[in-house]
Simulated assay, not measured.
Amino acid sequence: RKRIDWRFIDGQLFVLDNFLDSLRVYPKEVPGLRPDSADGIALRNQMLEEMESQGGLSRTITLKACVSVPGALEGETVRAWLPIAAACRQQSQVEMLDMTPEGVVAPANASARTASWVSSTDRSFSVTYRYHIDAAYCDIYGGALPSHPCMDAPLPEETSEDRPHIAFTPYLRQLTERVIDGLEDPLDCARAIYDYLTQHIDYRYQPPYLLLGSIADDCAHSLRGDCGVMALTFITMCRIAGVPARWQSGLYVAPDSVGPHDWAEFYTPQTGWLNADVSFGSSARRMGEEWRRRHYFGNLDPWRMVANDRFQAEFVPAFDGMREDPYDNQMGEVSVNGRGCRRREMLRTVELIEMLEVPFSD
């Protein structure tokens, strides 16, 4: 049924080692394969319903991130970078509570914010931080507009290409023209692009992005991708349509799990900056939850940690080798004597220490 993605490498067919996780997303099409637990879904839906009924939710979240390189030899210089909460539209009151000594914290508005270290003795590094996050809700499909829009003017690069992955290819130009045909209002254009992508793209776990070609164009052809692939496709099509759009990524922080996640921001003159989570919208469509699909156009939720606001952003201080993921930073990166470590060489964890419900402040 073409549900298993594959690659030819030196004439041999290979599939991703986590292909079962992709199949598990479609339990009705793969009889006998145990689906993911529904407990987390019920908890999430309850939170979203509260968010919509109250006009928004706020949380104060404390996280501990760790990275280690047990294979580094004595005397080798280890450099480590761990993502931390950045100052942005949703996040404020960021505090560093504890960290491995001699760490350097990047500026609050760094495009890929990190805590970093250089050591010839330490092999493990950690940082514990706390931040406040506000998630306002506005029924964009119902015609409502934000009460306090963020009207920060878009930058020129937020309407342009950023090759190789945000590329205005002939196919994407043609597809975008078809999707927004007859529409002039930027908000209508962004909504039409979101509708098309969430209703047509299926979720698939991906190889490392370094192994992918032109991500947005490939996704538009294959109609499959993960959260970052979908976000990049939305950003690219919005920019083609003249709607400023940019990247956001970091973590999805649920009470029972923490993991990497990517989504997008877009700008219209009447709304200012809003979010779109195409991956979660696609998931909602797949599960028959139209209300949730609509929620993630214009809104997110308070279960987030934003560390990055640009795809392909450099670290501060700069990385000194080839990163495991040169495009995004959600779990951390390490180099040993100037050589970037691969995933199998690093042990990386993020732990939720505390999540406090606090009054929402719009």
Score class of each variant (00 low, 15 high):
residue 216 A to H: 00
residue 77 T to H: 11
residue 31 P to I: 11
residue 83 P to D: 10
residue 5 D to K: 06
residue 235 I to D: 05
residue 40 G to D: 01
residue 232 L to I: 03
residue 142 G to Q: 06
residue 231 A to Y: 07
residue 306 V to M: 06
residue 284 A to H: 03
residue 55 G to H: 02
residue 222 S to A: 11
residue 129 Y to K: 02
residue 151 M to W: 04
residue 88 C to G: 13
residue 165 H to C: 03
residue 160 S to Q: 15
residue 241 A to G: 06
residue 144 A to I: 00
residue 276 A to K: 00
residue 240 I to S: 09
residue 255 P to Q: 05
residue 322 M to L: 12
residue 354 E to L: 09
residue 194 Y to L: 04
residue 254 A to F: 01
residue 118 V to S: 07
residue 211 L to S: 14
residue 360 F to G: 00
residue 78 V to W: 03
residue 16 L to V: 09
residue 358 V to R: 04
residue 259 G to T: 08
residue 128 T to F: 07
residue 319 F to I: 08
residue 181 D to T: 13
residue 137 Y to K: 00
residue 85 A to K: 08
residue 20 L to C: 02
residue 162 D to K: 06
residue 170 P to F: 01
residue 188 D to W: 07
residue 245 A to I: 00
residue 194 Y to S: 05
residue 209 Y to T: 05
residue 81 W to N: 06
residue 254 A to C: 04
residue 91 Q to D: 10
residue 288 G to C: 03
residue 91 Q to F: 05
residue 335 S to Y: 04
residue 319 F to G: 13
residue 211 L to C: 11
residue 136 A to N: 04
residue 185 D to V: 11
residue 91 Q to H: 11
residue 308 N to Y: 00
residue 41 I to E: 11
residue 315 F to S: 03
residue 159 T to G: 15
residue 230 M to G: 06
residue 172 L to W: 05
residue 339 R to L: 10
residue 221 H to K: 08
residue 336 V to R: 02
residue 243 V to I: 12
residue 117 W to D: 12
residue 142 G to H: 04
residue 311 F to N: 02
residue 103 G to H: 05
residue 18 N to G: 06
residue 325 D to N: 12
residue 326 P to Q: 12
residue 7 R to L: 12
residue 38 A to T: 14
residue 227 C to E: 14
residue 201 I to K: 01
residue 13 L to N: 03
residue 59 R to N: 00
residue 117 W to A: 09
residue 337 N to H: 07
residue 103 G to R: 06
residue 55 G to E: 00
residue 229 V to I: 12
residue 186 P to Q: 05
residue 184 E to V: 15
residue 158 E to P: 09
residue 188 D to A: 09
residue 321 G to M: 06
residue 1 R to A: 14
residue 150 C to L: 12
residue 243 V to H: 08
residue 54 Q to S: 13
residue 155 L to E: 15
residue 206 Q to M: 15
residue 194 Y to D: 06
residue 184 E to S: 07
residue 3 R to I: 13
residue 175 L to A: 14
residue 184 E to T: 10
residue 156 P to G: 15
residue 105 V to L: 08
residue 193 I to L: 13
residue 308 N to Q: 15
residue 228 G to Q: 04
residue 157 E to F: 10
residue 199 Q to E: 14
residue 311 F to P: 01
residue 287 M to W: 08
residue 231 A to W: 12
residue 13 L to D: 00
residue 64 K to F: 06
residue 238 C to T: 00
residue 129 Y to A: 04
residue 222 S to N: 04
residue 233 T to N: 01
residue 88 C to K: 05
residue 37 S to K: 08
residue 264 A to M: 00
residue 226 D to H: 08
residue 42 A to W: 00
residue 42 A to P: 00
residue 146 P to I: 06
residue 196 Y to C: 08
residue 54 Q to W: 02
residue 105 V to I: 10
residue 110 A to P: 04
residue 197 L to T: 11
residue 263 W to L: 04
residue 359 P to G: 01
residue 4 I to F: 13
residue 228 G to E: 05
residue 25 V to K: 10
residue 343 R to V: 04
residue 337 N to D: 13
residue 113 R to W: 09
residue 69 V to A: 14
residue 223 L to A: 09
residue 101 P to H: 13
residue 291 W to Q: 10
residue 212 L to I: 11
residue 264 A to R: 01
residue 89 R to D: 14
residue 130 R to W: 03
residue 19 F to H: 13
residue 195 D to Q: 09
